[in-house]
Simulated scan of single mutants.
Amino acid sequence: MEGWAKTGNQRGWWLDFQEAVTPDYADHIALESEATYIRSWQPVLIPGLLQTAEYAESVITSGPTFIPSATAARLVQVRQERQKRIQQGGVQFAAVIWEPAISSLASVPAIAVPQWRRLLEAGERHNVTVQMLPASASRAAGAAGPFVSFSFGDEPTAEAVAVENLPNTSVIEVPDDIALYVNVFDRLRSTALSPEETADRIRQLLTSAQHTTGETS
């Protein structure tokens, strides 16, 4: 795994952002850049690979650590660069997001509306699956904090898991531990709304926000 992270893409594009990207974040991006399958569980935030620039900026600048505006802008750029793999179809990406992470955006329509549209657009891609875990499924949502699993071959067998903690991201490579996260993700995905039901729910949020603000789609 360390070899993939060090040799992947020879010189990773993220090295151009060394002043903003921490070493553990760089490791995460290196794994992400080589993965053929990525699965993400997010109970609190929209996954970085699906964030709009405005949403990303709001998340980055509202964290527990002060980040200068110039650094925040560079981190937003990093998120946009990461998203190119999805846009180019180079990876299969599946995301399960707890409903409060999506619906709570309604309090800031200027951020919410573009972000909901981005989720709908992403879900229409052949290589992306977006599913919403209903707010009522709190027991399932509490099974694990946010994590991302990576597969690197033709088969979608997870070979590494990145677990997000407050100070950093830990990468797990022990097979038995990885299996626990795979089982959790499978349960989350089976409990979540289907991609079609998820899209319908997001469209309802969009319609409600547009009625409130007077905006038309």
Score class of each variant (00 low, 15 high):
P156W: 13
A140W: 05
L205K: 09
V113P: 07
R118K: 13
L166A: 14
A112N: 05
Q131F: 02
T212P: 02
Q204S: 09
Q115C: 09
E159F: 09
A141M: 02
D154K: 10
P195S: 11
V171N: 00
E173M: 06
A137F: 06
V163F: 00
R117K: 14
V171G: 04
D176W: 12
T198G: 09
D176N: 14
R139Y: 06
G142A: 07
P134I: 13
Q131G: 07
D154A: 15
A122E: 00
A140E: 15
A160E: 05
D176Y: 09
T207F: 02
Y181C: 10
S151C: 01
D154S: 14
V184T: 04
A209M: 05
E196P: 04
I111T: 14
A106Q: 10
A106C: 05
L119E: 07
D177G: 07
N165D: 05
T207E: 00
H211C: 13
E121G: 05
A141Y: 03
V174N: 01
G142Q: 06
H126W: 02
V113Y: 04
D200C: 04
V148P: 01
S170L: 00
V182C: 08
E197R: 03
P195T: 15
R201L: 08
S136G: 07
P195I: 13
E196M: 05
Y181L: 03
V174K: 02
I202Q: 01
I178D: 07
A112D: 05
Q210D: 12
T191D: 08
R139V: 13
V163W: 02
T207N: 04
R117V: 06
M132H: 04
S136Q: 12
R187K: 13
I178M: 01
S136T: 14
F147L: 07
S208F: 05
P167W: 04
L193W: 09
S194K: 09
L105D: 07
L188E: 04
